[in-house]
């Protein structure tokens, strides 16, 4: 049984806004954002299982002047915040981005909207076309290339 590392309501709200800022919704593509309820629940489940993230988040808030300051930056100038974070390669946010992406692109609603299969790949499998084997004709006419020895 994995140990869960709990977060305060305020921290969860901020994580959710962060997720939605990383991958937002698209009405035209019928895609939810990463802050959609089910997707965020999966993100939170993954975040809570990563022990190092708890302290990483605290360090992150400290670095940017506390949780309220970070929340304000997300609202006011998200891109500026992201640029700073990306330059610093902050481990906390880098990990959150991975977990957000994994959760988002594993979500059934997202996969269906992207016209991708939303279940396990086995036993369904996939079709793979044979392709044009005549492409090999010029190679077949090559002289042996290996060195005799």
């Amino acid at each position: 049984m994995a140990i869960l590392h709990s977060y305060t309501q305020q921290e969860k709200q901020l994580l959710r806004r962060l997720a939605g800022s990383i991958i937002g919704a698209s009405e035209s593509l019928d895609l939810p954002g990463a802050d959609e309820e089910d997707i965020f629940a999966e993100i939170l489940r993954r975040v809570e299982r990563k022990a190092a993230l708890r302290q990483g988040m605290a360090d992150f808030f400290t670095e940017f002047g506390g949780i309220d300051a970070v929340a304000n930056l997300i609202d006011v100038d998200f891109q500026a915040l992201m640029e700073v974070v990306q330059k610093k390669q902050h481990v906390f946010l880098a990990t959150v981005v991975i977990l957000v992406t994994q959760s988002y692109y594993q979500n059934a609603q997202v996969l269906r909207a992207l016209n991708k299969h939303d279940g396990p790949p086995f036993p369904r499998g996939n079709d793979l076309e044979q392709g044009d084997w005549s492409l090999l004709d010029p190679v077949k006419s090559k002289a042996p290339m290996f060195r005799e020895c």
Partner: peptide, 27 residues
């Protein structure tokens, strides 16, 4: 042609779209 003669025991994997794209480049 890169090897001495050898005989695989079953036909090759399909080229698929990706192999075919790169094969064109090699050619």
């Amino acid at each position: 042609p890169a090897y001495p003669p050898k005989q695989p025991v079953m036909p090759p994997l399909p080229l698929g779209k990706s192999s075919a794209a790169l094969a064109g480049g090699f050619n």
